[in-house]
Amino acid sequence: MMDIVDKIKGIEGVKVTVQRENRIFVDVSEDKVISTLYNMKLIGFHQLSVQNVIDRIKDNKFEIFYVLYSREYKINAIVRTWIDRENPVIKTADKIYPSAHTWEREISEMFGIKVDGNEDSGKPFILENWKDLPPMRKDFDSVKYSSEHFVFRHSEGENE
């Protein structure tokens, strides 16, 4: 375990936190994500389990994270980075992890994040005829959207 942590610490510009046995957080700045992922793959993290986004609306940031797994060492490593909420753009990781291609397509639809280098980002993926804010953003009002588009059923005797 610790020799892997030392190897990861050798990558330029990373902040490594060992959360518990077999789980490591690797925080990097926005511009070093792709090179970090490349180096992580060289170390032995061959599998991208999940790539997703958390909307940190209080800090006005999007947290992008890549959950990597190594079958060899049985370790999860989570690479995290933060980008601004205004005009969010990330670079594609699909040259390193091919499965990132589909994750990025979902991210770009659900959060409205543009993915540079991924020609499928921005194409419709799950939603149909979507014209509102991307639905996974925290400032998207789900109840309001739902009550505008779909009709509630009121049972008999209920006050409207």
Binding site: S142, S146, V151, F152
Partner: peptide
């Protein structure tokens, strides 16, 4: 019937 636990979802039709 009425959306159930997904009554406030952005995608679920309710009736």
């Amino acid at each position: 019937l009425n959306g159930g636990v997904y009554w406030d979802s952005y995608a679920v039709i309710k009736q």
